[in-house]
């Protein structure tokens, strides 16, 4: 088909609304209010090292917890019958379709000082515990919101593992544990790397979860950026510099993960 030109409008659109804005971020990050070149903004980001470290650390912890919870679940799902598999996928996706603000709000009501959990503990005469406005609460919120992003790619890759390959391993003397470690695990590596990316990227850049569950004391990179653009600290130049740093962090994470995943798989997973 000789219809190369039908893509032209989209190329123009991409140039205007995808590429130009990112170039603007780059420009803003390296200029001051008068439009002169400066690296002031970038060096200023250094003052927030503790926030950067906290963001990466909390996102990493949440990602690992997601992986630990999701891995056995995805495997169990992948060995079910087709209709049960469909039901399970639906059950996993259903909470994902609820707006994440509502999901996070739900945990607010559960974790707060006179919330449901503390009342429950009260029945046994313990507590109340400080659960809301802690780093633990932020991690919990991340795990809860992004767990399906880990389960689904793992499940997609595991469902492709032929039952006969697993039987072949058993036939050759591998115990269930050995089957898991020497066949299922290596074959699911692309799913693991996709899952890690899909959980880590939104987790490290979130600003709502930390604001709602972390209180004021647990600022993350996302909160910093938000403060520079819509907050009291209005400074789009610094905000752009922080955004740039965030993109670099994510690019690093993704290039590490890309070593393991197959490009083809990832494309399929995003859909």
């Amino acid at each position: 088909m000789k219809s190369k030109y039908s893509a032209l409008p989209y190329y123009v659109w991409m140039a205007l609304f995808t590429i130009a804005p990112l170039i603007l971020v780059l420009v803003f990050a390296f200029t001051d209010n008068n439009g002169a070149f400066t690296i002031e903004n970038i060096s200023q980001v250094g003052e927030y090292t503790n926030v950067l470290v906290r963001s990466v650390w909390l996102a990493a912890v949440a990602t690992v917890i997601c992986l630990l919870i999701a891995y056995p679940l995805a495997y169990i799902m992948s060995r079910l019958g087709p209709s049960k598999q469909r039901t399970m996928v639906m059950l996993i996706m259903l909470p994902m379709w609820m707006n994440f603000l509502l999901r996070t709000y739900a945990w607010m009501t559960i974790l707060e000082n006179n919330g449901l959990l503390n009342r429950f503990f009260g029945l046994f005469g313990v507590g109340p515990f400080d659960m809301i406005n802690t780093q633990g609460a932020v991690v919990l919120g991340m795990v809860y919101n992004y767990l399906p992003f880990m389960i689904l790619p793992l499940y997609t890759i595991m469902v492709k593992i032929d039952n006969r390959v697993i039987e072949a391993a058993q036939d050759l003397g591998a115990s269930p544990l050995k089957v898991a470690s020497s066949v299922v695990l290596p074959l699911s590596v692309p799913g693991i790397s996709t899952g890690i990316t899909m959980v880590f990227v939104p987790a490290v850049s979130t600003f709502i979860i930390s604001r709602m569950l972390g209180g004021g004391g647990n600022l993350l990179i996302g909160d910093l950026i938000d403060l520079q653009f819509l907050g009291n600290a209005y400074n789009p130049h610094l905000g752009s510099a922080i955004s740039l740093v965030l993109m670099v962090i994510i690019l690093l994470c993704m290039s590490v993960m890309n070593q393991f995943g197959e490009e083809e798989e990832r494309e399929g997973m995003l859909i």
């Binding site: 006969r164 003397g173 050995k178």
Partner: peptide, 27 residues
């Protein structure tokens, strides 16, 4: 199955896709 003294050649082979020929046979 993993404790039986029989081995199987599966329909459509069921080779381990992540291992090479040597590693498959050595499994």
């Amino acid at each position: 199955p993993y404790k039986r003294q029989v081995n199987t050649v599966f329909q459509r082979y069921a080779l381990f896709p992540h291992l090479n020929v040597f590693e498959n046979v050595a499994f």
